[in-house]
Amino acid sequence: MEPVISTRGLTKDYGSVVALADLTLDIGPGITGLVGANGAGKSTLIKILLGLVMPTSGSSQVLGLDVATESAEIRGRVGYLPEHDCLPPDVSASDFVVHLGMMSGLPRVAARERAAEVLRHVGLAEERYRPMGGYSTGMKQRAKLAQALAHDPRLVLLDEPTNGLDPAARDDMLGLVQRVGDDFGISVLVTSHLLGELERVSDHVVILDSGRLLRSSETREFLNATGTLLVEVLGQDAQARMGQALAAAGVPVHPRGGLLALDPDPDSPHDVHDLIRDTALDLGVGLVRIQADHRRIEDVFADG
């Protein structure tokens, strides 16, 4: 499939810092998480893609349009949610989204309809008629998302949409991001410095480290099962007794926190799940759970 975003040797040298170093990247449709620590170059990449910052060298394309020569067309088809505050406090979300829809080229009547529609989708109901200065952080982020969607873009660039949100609001926002990508059919590039939250919503994860591409692959490749099983047991000295019994049965086992991590021989003819069940029954310990150990995106950093 044709990439939504592609960069070739993209470099941005601010003199004192190199924000992006020779970045070559293809991002396809769907939801892509852009992960990196603060200062890894995420915001710089977004600003270059919008044509707001000139790269020192290299080229990039968005939606098949060249950033260097067609940035006005790109900005007409892309929505942007900036990282920092951008809402005037004395304007209602409704008026604000109508105005910004018009600034993206919608005629007034269409902008009104679209504003009502996207505000409903992001979950701002009656409060959309109130000045935004009185909004909670979660509502502000929703209003920011609404303005990014006002003109029905083909792609939205969301810079840290969960920034400053409490856990519940963060979950809501991630759910919204997922809906934008999956239900609205708009491609999403969403950044975060928290790796864990993007593995839930994105199809694809790109990891930047100091302006360099650390890794780019599908989310499920990061998360594929490692073959290790995690077992939790309950009872008097249960964990130690269970561990000894399993080791005696020939399964390599070591404790990991409150769990036992088993690395069964994948070629073994016996099902290790049966062995765990039978051992627990023999010892009289309570078997709480058996689960496959998935990798986490964080492990990519541990791997180096």
Binding site: L50, L52, A72, E73, R75, G76, V78, Y80, P82, H84, D85, C86, L87, P88, P89, L100, M103, S104, G105, Q147
Partner: peptide, 13 residues
């Protein structure tokens, strides 16, 4: 209020 960023991210130069 930082709204300028939203204008600059739109088609108008």
């Amino acid at each position: 209020h930082g709204t300028i960023a939203l204008y600059l991210a739109r088609p108008l130069p």
